[in-house]
C-alpha cells in the first residue's frame, strides 16, 4: 500500500493546553499573529468559552491545522506551484514560490488553517527560533507543513513531540503495523467535513 502520512488526535486525551500551538510557533519561527495550529474550543465562540447554560456547561477541544487532504483543492488551483503534494501525502506550502493570490485559502474546505501573512511581519523575540529554515514573507500564505523539515531528519512534528498528554500520533497509514493504523482500527474516529470529499489526513479519536 502507498505511504500516507497521517496525524491521529485523541480528543479524549486533549486538555486544550495549547502546548502544540506554542511548540509549532517556536519550531517554525512564526511571526506574531501567525498560527499554523490552534486548539479550538467546541462550545461557544472564543477560546475556553464553555457552551450550555449554568450549571450544565460543557467544553471540548479540537486541535486544528492543515488537514493535508488527499484530494487537496488547494494543490489543484495554485497557479505558482507553491502548494504541492508530496508522494507520502504531505501538502506543502512554499512561501518563496507563493504569489499571494490566496486561491488556496479560498478553496480550502477548512476555515482558519491558513494564514495570509500581513504587510509587516513582527517577531516577539529578536532572534529566530526553531529549526525550520523557511523564510516568512509578507503577502504570502502560510500553513502547517507537518514539520517536513523534521520528518527529513527522522523526527516527529513538533506538535506531536511536545504534547504532554500524548494526544497526537503521527505515522504511515499505508503500513498496517504502524501506531496510527492500529489506533484507527481499534478506536472510533472521524475526519472533519468528510462530506466535502477532500479526504483529510487528520483523524480524530473519540
Amino acid at each position: 500500500m502507498t505511504k500516507r502520512l497521517v496525524m491521529v488526535i485523541d480528543l479524549q486525551a486533549c486538555t486544550g493546553c495549547n502546548t502544540c500551538s506554542v511548540a509549532c510557533k517556536q519550531e517554525n519561527n512564526l511571526p506574531d499573529g501567525v498560527w499554523w495550529t490552534q486548539v479550538v474550543t467546541l462550545g461557544d465562540n472564543g477560546n475556553d468559552s464553555p457552551a450550555g447554560e449554568y450549571p450544565n456547561l460543557f467544553m471540548d477541544y479540537l486541535p486544528l491545522g492543515c488537514q493535508h487532504c488527499v484530494n487537496a483543492p488547494c494543490v489543484e488551483v495554485c497557479p505558482s506551484g507553491a502548494t504541492a503534494q508530496t508522494e507520502d501525502g504531505l501538502v506543502i506550502q512554499d512561501p518563496t514560490q507563493c504569489g499571494g493570490c490566496r486561491y488556496c485559502m479560498l478553496v480550502c474546505p477548512y476555515t482558519g488553517v491558513r494564514v495570509f501573512a500581513g504587510e509587516t511581519l513582527r517577531y516577539s523575540l529578536p532572534f529566530p527560533t526553531g529549526d525550520n529554515p523557511m523564510i516568512h514573507r509578507p503577502f504570502t500564505v502560510e500553513k502547517c507543513n507537518f514539520c517536513a523539515h523534521r520528518l527529513k531528519r527522522g523526527l516527529l512534528p513538533a506538535c506531536v513531540d511536545s504534547c504532554p498528554m500524548v494526544a497526537r500520533t503521527f505515522g504511515d497509514l499505508g503500513d498496517p503495523n504502524s501506531e496510527v493504523s492500529k489506533l484507527l482500527r481499534e478506536r472510533p474516529h472521524f475526519q472533519l467535513l468528510v462530506e466535502k470529499g477532500a479526504d483529510p489526513s487528520t483523524f480524530y479519536l473519540t
Binding site: 487532504c69 483543492p73 466535502k196 470529499g197
Partner: peptide
C-alpha cells in the same frame, strides 16, 4: 453525500 472538492473549488 460527498461532494467533489475540485468542482466546489
Amino acid at each position: 453525500s460527498v461532494s467533489d472538492p475540485f468542482q466546489n473549488a
